[in-house]
């Protein structure tokens, strides 16, 4: 079972990454955006977003989703950071998972953008990822984890 970081610990679950070539999601795999859009019933559904997917397709169904995984094929592609923030700002409350090739050093920014689960394609990253997931830090900007910018909090 794939291991991931969630709720401040290393845990596992059953979801496998999306198979984007298949017409329907194979059993146990996350649906891609196109596969998810074809689902007749979206209540309690999960979804994997790729860089370049149009997030606006998902916005009307945010209440029905329980898991959105954002795929990072390469850690330098920062589109997923905006996707996370957009989903949260528009009211998504389910699990928001970063999936794929990203760095432990990006977990903090991902958390700030609303991500709460982290699944590395390289599980050797988990321990360093967990360490970095539990760091606290001061920030200037408003973000999902701290809705007030520092200029509204300075004492």
């Amino acid at each position: 079972m794939p291991k991931l970081i969630k709720d401040g610990d290393i845990t596992e679950d059953n979801w496998l990454p999306a198979d984007t070539d298949a017409e329907a999601p194979p059993a146990g795999h996350l649906p891609s955006l196109a596969q998810w859009q074809a689902l007749p019933d979206k209540s309690g559904s999960a979804l994997q977003l790729e860089p370049g997917d149009d997030v606006s397709n998902v916005l009307p169904s945010l209440d029905q989703l329980v898991l959105v995984a954002v795929h990072f094929p390469v850690f330098t592609d920062g589109r997923g950071f905006s996707y996370g923030r957009e989903l949260r700002e528009r009211g998504y409350r389910g699990e928001l998972r970063a999936l794929g090739y990203f760095l432990p050093d990006q977990i903090h920014y991902l958390q700030r953008c609303g991500f709460d689960a982290f699944q590395f394609s390289d599980e050797a990253r988990l321990e360093e990822g967990l360490r970095q997931a539990n760091l606290s830090a001061e920030h200037y900007q408003a973000a999902i984890d701290e809705p007030l910018p520092l200029f509204r909090r300075r004492v």
């Binding site: 850690f75 920062g78 953008c113």
Partner: peptide
């Protein structure tokens, strides 16, 4: 400067 320093969304443009 403060807004852009470590902006979590825009570090991998």
């Amino acid at each position: 400067r403060q807004w852009s320093t470590f902006h979590p969304e825009f570090a991998f443009l």
